[in-house]
């Protein structure tokens, strides 16, 4: 599913004048493409996702997803994964994933098979009856991923999905998302503040800057997959993007980070 964002502006009416969070946003995302959006906090990158999924409305401009507006899109077509797993503490792993099913007409037996399939896919077999509070952070996020994937969304929006996880879990889950992409060719838009993650996953990296949130630059990442974080190619893009954030003075980077 292709996605087009045209001259989008978003103003939040917090005070009398309103605060401009997004300005002149233009994005063209092709079917099956992974686009990483990086930017410091407050650059409106999460708001952009909310606009795409129809939780917020644009102030000006247009968003079209396969010729439809976000709020016309069926919940089975676009899925979203948040930074926090956002599981229901009173539902077991099984029930949490089952809750994700957006289709209403699905027979019981098929439902059960579907849930079990996705439990297995995210490697949580044996934990069906566990409650979220009995799981580690990584496992919780797996449940959350399964809950979203169960609808086989054509477009997946990820809002700093691995931001709260430790480095090892993070890399594992990144690879799993890529596996899913290999199989399903899902279009993904992943918002992150982790530049390595952005390069590792994205066909394209969009750099945003705040106040108001604009797209500062777009990088096409020309590295074949599987990508290695230690390769020279990777480092080339890493340096370019760092420069975009911090200017030519690379010496400052270590200090800032």
């Amino acid at each position: 599913m292709a996605l087009e964002v045209k001259n989008v502006r978003k103003v939040f009416s917090i005070n009398k004048d309103g605060i401009e969070v997004l300005k002149d946003i233009n994005l063209n995302i092709k079917d099956g493409e992974i686009v990483s959006v990086v930017g410091s906090s407050g650059c409106g990158k999460s708001t952009l996702l909310k606009l795409l999924i129809g939780l917020e409305d644009v102030t000006e401009g247009d968003i079209t997803i396969n010729e439809k507006k976000p709020y016309e899109i069926d919940s089975t077509e676009v899925g979203m994964i948040f930074q926090e797993a956002r599981l229901f503490p009173w539902k077991s792993v099984y029930k949490n994933i089952e809750f994700g099913i957006a289709r209403k007409d699905i027979p019981k037996k098929e439902k059960k098979e579907l849930v079990n399939h996705y439990i297995e896919l995210v490697g949580l077999k044996g934990f069906e009856n566990a409650l979220p509070d009995q799981l580690s952070g990584g496992m919780k996020q797996r449940v959350s991923i399964a809950r979203t994937l169960i609808n086989k969304p054509k477009i997946l929006l990820l809002d700093e999905p691995f931001g709260a996880l430790d480095a090892f879990t993070k890399i594992n889950l990144q690879n799993e998302m890529l596996n899913i992409w290999e199989k399903e060719k899902t279009t993904m838009i992943i918002v992150t503040h982790d530049i390595d993650e952005a390069i590792y996953l994205g066909h394209k990296v969009v750099v945003m800057s705040p106040k108001p949130g604009i797209i500062q630059k777009e990088f096409k990442i020309d590295i074949s997959r599987p990508r290695s974080r230690t390769s020279d190619d990777f480092d080339y893009y890493r340096k370019k993007i760092y420069k975009e954030f911090f200017g030519e003075n690379i010496a400052n980077i270590e200090y800032i980070i």
Binding site: L55, S75, G79, F82, E84, R86, F88, F99, A102, N151
Partner: peptide, 12 residues
């Protein structure tokens, strides 16, 4: 409200 948002995204 974050959990309610999840449900809305899922079209509940």
């Amino acid at each position: 409200s974050k959990l309610i948002e999840v449900a809305k995204v899922l079209g509940k």
